[in-house]
């Protein structure tokens, strides 16, 4: 922070000091009038942006937080203190949804490694890499509803996935009906559906990689794993960080469609995520205040995750 603050402060000091001769020449009226309009100008210029953020972002946010301290149903409109939060943290469904957020964070490396590895193979020109490049991106253009419907059929108990398992002599897996499996199945489908976008980002990162470094490493006799570990990964550190951040945001905010179509939060409530829980309490159960409380908790979680990511990015930026 201190390093960036110094250049900013210099012009401010010049303005607040004695008026420079140049300014006096340009202004026909008194110095006082000029300085007032000049002082107001920046506020006027940022006003639209501030208003939009204030009216459409911060005010609704404040309202939502406020509503989380009011009651539902018969207690509609009454201040109930922390009751909603007590209910929330007593609700096994909400606890399950928060646990699933933790699971998503744990699965994040997998979600980043898959497009990273595949992009590496394409970059190293494995046979057919041109075909793979477009094939990998294809699922990214499908809507979650369509993908969910397709995988509902594929992963049905008597569907093709289990038929395949049966053919190789393995017992059937109840992909979407077993609470220990369902969340992994949905996350797997989500990764399959979205890794194309991360792959493109990785390929763009590879384009900036210095090919002569890899050639030099090869000449020195480095094996492929060593090239990946010591040349490619360090060279792509910025890209990897970007993909980590966008993938995390994608997993936390855009799984709703898949969940809705594939499991509906079940089986046994094992695939609830906070946003699904919020939707469920607000619309299905008619408890908007409880949903507001859940939203507030989700906001807090996202704030922590977001700030942590910004901190990581900033530190990495300084290293460059």
């Amino acid at each position: 922070m201190p390093t960036t603050a110094t250049p900013l402060r210099t012009p401010v000091r010049a303005r607040s000091g004695t008026p420079t001769p140049r300014r006096r020449v340009r202004s026909g009226r008194g110095a006082a009038g000029t300085s007032r309009s000049e002082r107001l100008a920046p506020y006027l210029l940022v006003a639209p942006a501030v208003l939009i953020i204030g009216v459409f972002r911060l005010y609704p946010l404040a309202l939502g937080v406020n509503f989380s301290f009011t009651g539902d149903g018969e207690r509609n409109g009454q201040a109930v203190g922390l009751d909603n939060y007590t209910v929330l943290f007593d609700d096994p469904l909400f606890i399950a949804s928060m646990r699933n957020v933790g699971l998503l964070v744990l699965l994040l490396p997998v979600a980043v490694a898959i497009p990273g590895l595949l992009a590496t193979f394409i970059y190293l020109r494995v046979p057919g890499h041109r075909v793979y490049r477009s094939v990998y991106f294809f699922p990214a253009v499908l809507s979650p509803v369509i993908i969910g419907a397709i995988f509902n059929l594929l992963l049905a108990f008597d569907g093709p996935a289990n038929a395949l398992l049966g053919a190789v002599g393995l017992g059937p897996v109840d992909w979407l009906g077993d609470p220990d499996v369902a969340m992994y199945a949905v996350v797997g489908v989500h990764i399959w559906a979205t890794f194309g976008m991360a792959l493109v980002v990785f390929l763009a990162g590879f384009a900036t990689l210095d090919a002569s470094l890899i050639d030099a490493a090869r000449v020195d006799g480095a094996s492929l794993p060593k090239v990946v570990r010591h040349v490619i990964v360090p060279g792509l550190s910025r890209t990897i960080q970007f993909v980590v951040v966008t993938t995390m945001i994608g997993m936390l905010t855009s799984m709703f469609g898949l969940l809705y179509v594939m499991t509906g939060g079940g089986p046994e409530g094992s695939t609830y995520l906070p946003e699904y829980y919020i939707w469920f309490q607000q619309g299905q159960m008619g408890r908007p205040a409880l949903a507001s409380a859940a939203s507030t908790v989700l906001f807090g979680v996202m704030l922590v995750v977001g700030l942590a990511q910004i901190a990581v990015l900033r530190r990495a930026g300084r290293e460059d």
Partner: peptide
């Protein structure tokens, strides 16, 4: 201030809107 501001409104109004 922006983050604490909601607390000033603590528990007023209603999530379900007025009748």
């Amino acid at each position: 201030t922006a983050l604490i501001a909601p607390l000033a409104l603590y528990g007023c109004g209603s999530a379900a809107g007025p009748d």
